[in-house]
Simulated assay, not measured.
Amino acid sequence: MRLVILDNYDLASEWAAKYICNRIIQFKPGQDRYFTLGLPTGSTPLGCYKKLIEYHKNGDLSFKYVKTFNMDEYVGLPRNHPESYHSYMWNNFFKHIDIDPNNAHILDGNATDLQAECDAFEKKIKEAGGIDLFVGGIGPDGHIAFNEPGSSLVSRTRLKTLAMDTILANAKYFDGDLSKVPTMALTVGVGTVMDAREVMILITGAHKAFALYKAIEEGVNHMWTVSAFQQHPRTIFVCDEDATLELRVKTVKYFKVISTLNMGLEFTNLQKWHAFLTSQQGDPGLHYTSKKGT
């Protein structure tokens, strides 16, 4: 498990985007070799998506041979509703890149048979060869996707009733009107995400600090489903300083030292930073520099 601590949200978003970019480039995807990427929604990944769009527009990154699988979708919300996750992904990411729409998979919350929809989603992931990198965010109560507190840590894609804390948190997207917030969703399971070859979890803001503490400093607990990823062989938690407020000083110092040794984050001069990245060979989270020098 790695914990990467950046000064603020923007730097955390950029680091995550560079990591995704390099994973795709180093994979060398092609017509018979697709990179499979799991994706989240919400406010946290927006900065990361903006940077990925920037890399694509600079000519540094293509999604032509990338297949994506989104974590979740509301049940009963029309696909073209501005707050559906279909709308979110197309407006904030997909329409700005060169991905084939047939390769962008999002659960259908209006399917006639919701369980069959979930089973088909799992089958599509399997047919794609599994997820190479699953990116996720968490709620303040430590849930990942819509795996609310108490969810099974071996769960698969399924229908879930949303916790009141989640409904309250999402009300801001529905004019503050709780009656408009969907109460059910389709979501990948914790086990679905655990099957990915690599997992990157984005955690930013002081309101996520206690969840980060539960995720990495205490034991695995189904009441904090993000804690399951302590047991994944390749998990990276990417956070900003605000999200570390509940962590022990010893924990923060340890991971910052590790980050300094592995990533050269002590370099504040951009030219030195780019030179350092160019010289590295072992960490794909380091190597991205734009062809245009950005």
Rank of each mutant, 00 (worst) to 15 (best):
G30T: 00
L61K: 10
G47R: 00
K50Q: 02
Y34I: 04
T41M: 06
Y88K: 03
K50F: 04
I99E: 07
K50C: 03
I97K: 10
P45Y: 04
D32H: 14
L52W: 07
G30E: 05
N92T: 01
P101K: 08
N70F: 15
P78S: 04
P40D: 00
H56S: 15
L61A: 03
I99D: 07
T44G: 12
G59W: 04
H86K: 10
K64V: 03
N91L: 03
P29N: 00
T44S: 15
N91Q: 09
K67Y: 00
L37Q: 08
Y49D: 01
P78G: 03
G76A: 05
Y49C: 04
H56E: 07
E73V: 05
L61I: 04
G38L: 03
E54Q: 15
F93N: 00
L39F: 01
L37W: 15
F93D: 03
I97S: 05
L61N: 07
I99A: 11
T41P: 13
P82D: 06
R79S: 07
L52Y: 05
N91P: 08
M89A: 01
Y85S: 06
H56W: 04
I106E: 10
I106T: 10
K67C: 03
Y85N: 10
L37T: 01
T41W: 03
N102P: 08
G38K: 06
K28Y: 00
T68F: 12
H81S: 06
Y49F: 13
T44H: 09
S87P: 09
L61V: 03
L61R: 06
L52G: 00
F94M: 00
N102Y: 14
H105P: 00
P82S: 05
G59Q: 14
T44I: 12
D100K: 07
E83H: 15
Y55C: 08
N80M: 06
L61C: 09
T41I: 09
K64P: 05
L61G: 06
H81W: 14
T41A: 12
I97F: 08
F69G: 07
L37R: 09
E73L: 15
Y34P: 07
V66I: 12
L46G: 01
T36L: 08
V75C: 14
G76S: 04
G42K: 02
D72K: 12
Y49T: 06
I106P: 15
H81Y: 08
D60H: 08
S43G: 13
C48E: 12
M71C: 06
T68R: 14
L77S: 13
